[in-house]
């Protein structure tokens, strides 16, 4: 079947099997390999991307279900000049990543947390990230990164497409 969607601001149309998972569409068809797959059961959140302004686990969404959507992955966050998104910047400064495997999903989920609550407490960040597993950091610095990003203002809870819409 034919699916069309805008991924990181670029329009794509592809012929795919109905069962193709959005995560595999992004990785294997579009070659956007930042989005990782860490489990089979919608548990780990490594595959989190933003679809139409909401964080979702792309391993549990069919590409067909995302037909017509605006999708943002980790690759779509930094500015064209390479300037890091406030959440990316905060993850780096607070050492919120180690092996990096959960990171793309964690960063996207964290943007979702701030979209929902621009200035969360530690507890609220932890609850907001309950669907994203990390084995390396003990979450300590991830929580710090999200709270620090919140101080950067509303852009930390937005993806570039949102910002364009907002303008």
């Amino acid at each position: 079947m034919k699916v069309s969607m805008t991924v990181n601001g670029q329009q794509h149309t592809d012929d795919v099997e109905p069962r193709l998972l959005l995560a595999h569409y992004l990785r294997d068809v579009l070659g956007l390999k930042a989005t990782n797959i860490g489990c089979d059961t919608t548990s780990c959140g490594a595959c989190t991307v933003i679809v139409d302004g909401l964080s979702v686990k792309s391993c549990t969404v069919l590409a067909a279900q995302a037909d017509g959507s605006q999708v943002t992955t980790l690759e779509g966050l930094a500015g064209p000049d390479g300037e890091l998104h406030p959440m990316q910047k905060a993850f780096r400064e607070e050492h919120g990543l180690q092996c990096g495997f959960c990171t793309p999903g964690m960063v996207m989920a964290a943007i979702g947390v701030l979209a929902d609550n621009p200035d969360p407490s530690d507890r609220e960040v932890r609850e907001g990230l309950e669907g994203n597993l990390c084995r390396c950091t003990g979450y300590h610095n991830i929580v710090r990164a999200v709270r620090s990003a919140a101080q950067a203002g509303p852009a930390a809870g937005q993806v570039p497409q949102d910002q364009e819409v907002a303008r």
Binding site: A34, H95, L97, T103
Partner: peptide, 21 residues
């Protein structure tokens, strides 16, 4: 010192075995 690894990990993602091209 913040990590030199991170800019790539945070923008393009690391390259794990399944990501290899």
């Amino acid at each position: 010192v913040v990590r030199t690894e991170d800019p790539l990990f945070l923008t393009r993602g690391a390259t794990y075995t399944d990501d290899l091209v």
